[in-house]
Design a binder for these strands. Structure first.
Lengths: 126, 126
DNA sequence: CATCAATACTGACAGGCATCGATGTCTTGG
DNA sequence: CCAAGACATCGATGCCTGTCAGTATTGATG
């Protein structure tokens, strides 16, 4: 079960509304912020990038560990955070645990920062 | 001056490379993560959204304060964090301080999550 | 100049988080 | 059945951060 009231599915479902269209409600911000906070750590951001850009868009802990000067429990902890936030999927195959990125999560974040309106915003301020 | 070694300009300059293309370097992650961390707080995410979607894409503290159950110093603190991270610009006009979103910062984040490769990633895993 | 309003700054405290060492669990191989 | 490797979990520790109360600063007004 999840640790708190943050439901990843809920977060993904509501991210489709760009934050430039209208003021974000408190509930929506509470749902989206954990995604950004999870990627707000340099280690987790690198882990996410490594998994996504890895072959077949998946990687096991043994692939990721050598890139850091951190202990294995620490890496495991960060992967767990990314998993609980809904950014990574876990799949155990034999002895190894493979983490896969969830494209819909990244797509949700991309939609959040949808830049279609940004040009309009810049022009409107003049 | 910035509080730490995080240079907003550096962060914005390097964000243009999507994190799905190749593994992110440690230095790059250190530069980008603060942007995501800054928006990883629900209050700051709402503040950012409110400023961007506000009339003329700017808002003063007195416009933002009533939407929260927080004290004025707390709101000011969060705005300061967003400003130091390079997400908001400050402009003092008379008694009021107007905060304006920096479109290039949001564009940088949008570029980070550029979804052009996501479809390829999903397909490639099959 | 005196007063008031709006905002920023400082110090302090509580809570959360990143990290580690030690240990447990599960799978594979002999 | 035992040993070894891969990964997760637990408990502890130190740092970071969100929050507030109080105070200083700045500009408008009379």
């Amino acid at each position: 079960m999840s640790k708190s009231g943050c439901d990843p599915n809920d977060a993904l479902a509501c991210c489709s509304t760009p934050l430039v269209r209208e003021p974000m409600t408190g509930a929506r911000a509470d749902a989206v912020a954990p995604l950004l906070r999870a990627l707000g750590d340099p280690v987790r951001l690198r882990l996410m990038s490594m998994v996504v850009s890895h072959e077949n868009a998946e990687a096991c802990v043994c692939d990721l560990l050598p890139a850091f000067d951190l202990s294995q429990p620490t890496i495991s902890h960060h992967l767990k955070v990314l998993h609980e936030t809904g950014l990574l999927d876990r799949e155990k195959r034999g002895v190894w645990v493979y983490y896969q990125a969830r494209p819909e999560a990244l797509a949700a974040l991309a939609g959040l920062f949808a830049s279609e309106d940004l040009g309009m915003v810049t022009g409107a301020s003049a």
